[in-house]
Amino acid sequence: MSQEIAVVGSPDFTTGFRLAGVRKFANVPEDDKDEQLDDAVREVFEDDGVGIVVMYDDDLDHLSRGVRRDVEASVEPVLVTLGGGTGSGGLREQIKRAIGIDLMDED
């Protein structure tokens, strides 16, 4: 069972998580984001010890179409995005994908 949290993003984004004790991370410099982000994300998602991957929401726009599709559809590890355009709808979808049910379903 996957139990670790991993963070992918710029050094500024990952530093706070590292200080909080997250040991798995991939720093992707801002100036090389379009070239290195796909590889960093693939590497983290292939790690069997990772259960949750945290990324900055706007970084999803820098992923290639195939990688973005794969990470958004992934159940394990689950992708959690922070900041940027993430609203309650995005968080709701992330929770639904992670646990398999919609807690807010009114039916």
Rank of each mutant, 00 (worst) to 15 (best):
M1R: 12
S2A: 15
S2V: 08
S2W: 10
E4H: 10
I5N: 06
I5T: 13
A6G: 09
V7M: 01
V8Q: 08
V8G: 01
G9A: 02
S10T: 15
S10L: 06
D12Q: 10
F13D: 12
T14M: 07
T15A: 15
T15N: 13
T15K: 15
G16K: 05
G16F: 03
R18S: 11
L19E: 07
L19T: 09
L19I: 11
L19G: 08
A20D: 10
A20F: 13
V22I: 15
F25N: 13
A26G: 00
A26M: 11
N27H: 07
N27L: 05
N27M: 09
D31N: 13
D32W: 05
K33T: 07
D34L: 12
E35N: 08
E35V: 13
Q36C: 06
Q36D: 14
Q36R: 12
L37K: 03
L37R: 04
L37A: 01
D39Y: 00
D39A: 14
A40L: 09
V41R: 04
V41N: 01
V41T: 14
E43G: 00
V44R: 11
F45G: 02
D47I: 11
V50Q: 12
V50K: 13
G51E: 09
I52Y: 01
I52E: 03
I52F: 07
V53N: 11
V54D: 01
V54K: 02
V54E: 02
M55G: 02
Y56L: 14
D58M: 14
D59M: 09
D59S: 06
L60H: 08
L60K: 04
L60S: 05
L60D: 09
D61V: 03
H62M: 11
L63K: 11
L63A: 11
G66D: 14
V67P: 03
V67I: 14
V67E: 06
R68I: 07
R68K: 14
R69A: 15
D70C: 00
V71S: 03
E72P: 07
E72G: 04
A73Y: 08
A73C: 07
S74K: 08
E76G: 01
E76Q: 12
E76C: 11
T81S: 11
T81V: 15
G83R: 06
S88E: 12
S88Y: 13
S88T: 14
G89T: 13
L91K: 07
R92K: 15
R92G: 12
E93G: 11
E93P: 04
Q94C: 08
Q94K: 07
Q94M: 15
Q94N: 04
I95H: 02
K96E: 14
K96V: 09
R97K: 11
A98H: 04
G100R: 07
D102E: 13
D102V: 05
L103I: 10
L103C: 03
L103W: 02
D105C: 01
D105V: 05
D105Q: 12
E106V: 14
